[in-house]
Amino acid sequence: MKASVIVFPGSNCDRDVAVSLEQAMGQKPNMVWHADSELPPSDLIVIPGGFSYGDYLRCGAIAGNAHIIRPVKEAAEKGAMVLGICNGFQVLTETGLLPGALMRNADLKFICKDAPLSVETSDTPFTKGYKQGQTISVPVAHHDGNYRADEDTLDRLEGEGRVAFRYADNPNGSARDIAGILSENKRVLGMMPHPERCADPLLGGTDGKALFTAIVEELS
């Protein structure tokens, strides 16, 4: 299995997720700079959390048009798995790989805390290590995590089993408590909470670990 983590100026969870991946896969992922226009062969591409380009214009807007995004989209079209965490989720909506948009939190505050999440489906390559309906605790740390999409899109996401995680106690005003969504083929996942921040006992929690283990099982 080959994994790549895309690094933008302002990414700050790239090394954390690289550690989680290395623990799950037994080898280091490629760290790929945003200005590269070629992506090494990758079964998994991670767009990490952070503040790419200082969140200028809109969160994820500039990163969504970086050189590396074209090969990322091409790889996704060929069936590579893509995981966008926090700012990575914002980038994925800006690229059109996932529908909707992430707006300023409803109470305007930056929220940094552990968030209980409900696993909405275990029938995906990302979430098969969880039980449907299981509650897990995963940290959130964002200012713009308020998920928005039109009603038709929200209905379609729910109808097609593409809501991966919901907040048990909605911290940011997200439509229908959505914390993470999947692409149509369920191989692209965007989520605001940070599974890489709870994938090792040293970090105070391990609820995120099953997500990385599931990806490695799927791709090995």
Partner: peptide, 9 residues
């Protein structure tokens, strides 16, 4: 359409 606005919102 490509960059300045996010026409979803």
């Amino acid at each position: 359409e490509k960059l300045l606005a996010n026409t979803v919102i």
